[in-house]
Simulated assay, not measured.
Amino acid sequence: MIKRLIFLGLLLLSGTSILPVSAQILTIATEHFPPYNYLDDNSKVVGINAELVQRSCEIAAIDCSIQSYPWLRAMSLTLENDYGALFSTLRSADRERQFQWVGPLVKSRAILYRLKSRPEIQVTRLEDAKNYVVGVARGDVYEAYLQQNGFSYGKNLFGFATKAEAANLFVQGKIDLLIGSWQILPMWLAPYNATVDDVEEAFQLRELGDNYLALNLKVPKQMVDQLQQALQKLHESGEYQQILEKYQYAPQHVSAQK
């Protein structure tokens, strides 16, 4: 008994958690990225991927706390927290070894859009887009992709805290190209009295990966596996499809399971 008490005391002094995996709270960060994840009128995180993640937590019997932040802050918190996670995170080659992964969740093709009122904007290849200003979210995977392809701030990139934030200056014609998809544009444009009828595709960007729930490398593998199994159960039960239909999401744009 004395040895056991000494052992427990040493664990407490060392800061090592002695709680079972199921008793640990998984702190999940996300960003404003409708319709996948966003705050409703009651400041609750909702959206297609938000519901998929929340239901996966419930099925796996894991206590999850979901909060919304600007993307760079959300990424930083996840990397700093041993029980941190982040969605909707595009699983790219550059990020592969930074996290453990649960998914795929839902996403759609990334496209460069222009206003219909600006037909002079012509992009037939990525190189052409360098002649215009593209709105990007700081820390986003497409920011890195464009920079790797020769784009730069002060020349043809303009940064925002969130992806949706770029829509304001885009509608005003102050930036030339907006990265988005037909699924997300209606919610992005609505606050600025614009609709998808006001825009058109300029160029389809290269696929960089699927959206996932990214977990800190120190999250126990048992918890990661439980969440992956729970997501699979959502597929098998038909609830996954029901969540998509709730948000009127077009099935043809859904990422295939891997």
Rank of each mutant, 00 (worst) to 15 (best):
Q122V: 14
Q226Y: 05
A194F: 01
Q98I: 09
V102Q: 04
I179D: 01
T124A: 11
L115D: 00
M223Y: 02
R118V: 02
G209H: 04
A93Q: 13
Y142R: 02
L105N: 11
G139P: 04
Q228K: 10
L217Q: 14
W101K: 07
L115E: 03
A214F: 11
A110I: 06
Q147S: 09
Q229A: 15
D128Y: 03
T195R: 01
N193I: 00
L215H: 07
W188K: 00
V134D: 03
W101V: 03
N211E: 12
Q222A: 14
A129T: 04
Q172N: 09
G180D: 15
E96P: 08
R97F: 09
E127M: 13
A190D: 14
D176P: 05
Q148N: 15
V136K: 00
V123C: 09
S117H: 05
R97M: 10
L231R: 03
P104T: 05
T124E: 13
K174G: 00
F99N: 07
V102C: 04
A110S: 06
W101H: 07
K155M: 03
A166M: 06
G209W: 02
K163V: 12
G103S: 00
A164R: 04
A214I: 02
R97C: 03
Q100F: 09
L157R: 02
F99M: 06
N193F: 11
N211W: 02
K116R: 14
Q172G: 00
A167F: 03
Q229I: 13
L177H: 05
V224A: 08
I111C: 06
N156F: 05
P119K: 02
Y132A: 08
A166L: 06
E127T: 13
V102N: 05
N131E: 02
E127W: 04
R109K: 11
M187F: 06
R125F: 07
L105Y: 12
K163I: 08
A194M: 04
Q100R: 14
A137G: 10
N131G: 06
Y212N: 11
K130E: 02
G103C: 04
A202Q: 08
R95P: 14
N168E: 15
W182M: 06
G150S: 08
F151M: 09
F99H: 10
V134T: 14
G209K: 07
G154C: 08
Y113G: 03
G150I: 06
V141H: 15
W188L: 04
G103V: 10
M223W: 00
D94R: 10
M187E: 12
Y145W: 13
D176T: 00
I111L: 11
Q122C: 01
A166G: 10
F151R: 12
L105S: 11
E200P: 08
A93M: 12
K155N: 07
K155F: 03
L146H: 01
G159R: 13
Q204S: 13
R114K: 15
A93N: 12
L208G: 04
A167I: 07
A161L: 10
L217N: 12
I175W: 02
F203W: 12
A202G: 11
N156E: 02
Q148W: 05
S181C: 11
D176R: 00
R95W: 09
L205P: 13
